[in-house]
Design a binder for these strands. Sequence first.
DNA 1: TTGAAATGTGTACAACTTACACTCTGATGA
DNA 2: TCATCAGAGTGTAAGTTGTACACATTTCAA
Lengths: 244, 244
Amino acid sequence: MDTIINNISVDCVIFGFHNNTLNVLLTERTLNDRNNGELLFRDYSLQGHHVQVGEDIYDAAVRVLKDKAGLTDIYLKQFYTFGETNRLKSVRDQLWIKFNYPSVSDHVITVCYYSLVDSSKTRPDKEHGNTSWFPINGLPELAFDHERILLLALHYLREEIKREPIAFELLPEKFTLTQLQSLYEVILNTKLDKRNFRKKITQAKYIIPLDEKKKGTAHKPAKIFIFSRDVYEKTKKEKLDLQF
Amino acid sequence: MDTIINNISVDCVIFGFHNNTLNVLLTERTLNDRNNGELLFRDYSLQGHHVQVGEDIYDAAVRVLKDKAGLTDIYLKQFYTFGETNRLKSVRDQLWIKFNYPSVSDHVITVCYYSLVDSSKTRPDKEHGNTSWFPINGLPELAFDHERILLLALHYLREEIKREPIAFELLPEKFTLTQLQSLYEVILNTKLDKRNFRKKITQAKYIIPLDEKKKGTAHKPAKIFIFSRDVYEKTKKEKLDLQF
DNA sequence: TTGAAATGTGTACAACTTACACTCTGATGA
DNA sequence: TCATCAGAGTGTAAGTTGTACACATTTCAA
């Protein structure tokens, strides 16, 4: 039997892009009264779990994605570790922990990752029935310090998407430029100029047009593009640009 | 008595700028043979320690800076957490740990910070006699996985100094533009054009010239500048600049 | 007073960013 | 089959920013 390390956990903030919004995958957490079964509270948490004995923390994050969301082979980035002594000390969290994981330490450090998934590949399955997507702008009440974790993840995502080609992790392999542009607009919360955006794309040789068009649209079909990490690695240039 | 959490530590990569190089503060680690006292090995480690029971991890980092290097009130940035199961498993490290900290877990997670100090304020004192500065380009052999940690710290420092006004943390309060420029040159490992560099400075209203000149130079004395975080916060503009 | 050493300054050209509006294409249904 | 709809796709001019480049100035010390 795998045993857990009782003071170290990982939490994953799983981002997906659909319905033209940025969404996060959350799991319902409820606590019922021990005596009468009455619902004491319902809120939502990130996907997380304790690291197991003998397990690397990165592997723990991979395991959490697999077990809690059925996701494999996706982008995972460690962004911060939370280690305040009071992070699980609210009355509600204490109740829940005592009921569900009585053996856990009262000072748990959590190493946090954010991950990016192509939501077209992720269908809600039976196994993870109490897990669902919530739009960034319409979050429910969150468990523990998960709101803080989520907001910081969003901050790092916004910074990273400006500098690294990670947007593609959130899109299907084949995408249109309109899709790509609205992804940037949604994440960065700005409006971008279509022509200027496309001018930049043309310069990036690793965003490659196919001889293929989007089918089944009631209007002019869009050209389809793919991202090549290979070409990216070979053509990327370091930009030195001091932001005084 | 303070007790330590035996599987969670913090490590600090302390950067300083002097002699026109970027330096790191390291502490000598030695192990002598139990029987004949003969030196088994000598290498160097970052400043680190286990987190104590009831202590926030950030506070642990502050404590480490104080206790191990006599530093207070300096810039501290968490950049990564290392949690591989084999990070302390080399023969040498195991020997050292068994001798010095036999009660420590064999899977220690370490939360890493880098810190920036104005080295003009840090004089090597008696208490920390086995601690000294090493230039980035002339590092000695390092303990544990500290070389890896140090290199990653350097990576994050290089990224952050391009976007945030942290260079000033490495300089005295009053500095000249030549000092500032060579700091950037050393950290980013490039040559910058003096006139263009100064043109940028002029635009940044938070780098403020004083009516004061450097004294005691055998040549034309340089104007003295200070950095104002206050003005920075008020005048900074978000730069949206997708690096395709 | 002269030399050494580092400070401080301007301009022209190239590259990049920004603002902006209309035509094209294919699907649909009248 | 033709008109309409909805989104795709395209170029240019003006402004801003980045880059390359060389010499006069100031102080100290000999």
